[in-house]
């Protein structure tokens, strides 16, 4: 998993670098946001993968938490990139233009709730099992 995390990190960084490069050069700048969005999702996901990965211990709750959160992040970025700008006036969602509301929900609200709860639920089994922690203390 460490190797996969590093590979994802490099791919994400190269995508971000490509976005910056095409913007700097001034060519094909309409694809730059796509590269930057993809790269940002990949870099975030890679860091989370590196932090959550374990050689032998299964981590199903953490995996599910991260999959949900990063799927939301990707959807939150790509949906507004795909759709034309919102129309002026109603209908609104939670008082905001629907696309804007959707972005805030997917990129901020869902991960703000899902990630810490998933982390808390996974803590004893997947993040820091008590027996492994005691072994580390005894080995000092």
């Amino acid at each position: 998993m460490q190797r996969a995390g590093i590979l994802l990190l490099v791919v994400g960084l190269l995508a971000v670098a490509a976005a910056y490069l095409v913007t700097l050069v001034g060519v094909a700048s309409d694809i730059a946001p796509w590269w930057l969005a993809s790269g940002t999702v990949a870099v975030f996901a890679s860091l989370a993968t590196l932090g959550a990965a374990h050689r032998v211990r299964p981590t199903p709750i953490l995996k599910a938490t991260l999959v949900i959160s990063f799927a939301c992040l990707a959807a939150g970025f790509f949906i507004p990139l795909l759709l034309p700008p919102p129309t002026i006036g109603p209908p609104l969602l939670f008082g905001l233009p629907r696309q804007t509301a959707l972005l805030v929900i997917l990129v901020y609200v869902v991960p703000l709730i899902v990630m810490p709860i998933g982390y808390g639920l996974a803590f004893d089994r997947e993040v820091l099992p008590p027996d492994e922690f005691e072994k580390l203390r005894e080995s000092r």
């Binding site: 971000v16 976005a19 913007t23 700048s29 730059a32 946001p33 930057l36 969005a37 790269g39 940002t40 870099v43 975030f44 860091l47 970025f77 507004p80 990139l81 700008p85 919102p86 905001l96 233009p97 696309q99 804007t100 959707l102 972005l103 990129v107």
Partner: peptide, 21 residues
């Protein structure tokens, strides 16, 4: 109040990348 605001997607995403990572 558009999803990326007045400065557009590139600036918004760049903020997210720099301040997030």
């Amino acid at each position: 109040v558009e999803p990326w605001g007045a400065r557009g997607a590139m600036v918004a995403l760049s903020y997210f990348f720099v301040f997030g990572v």
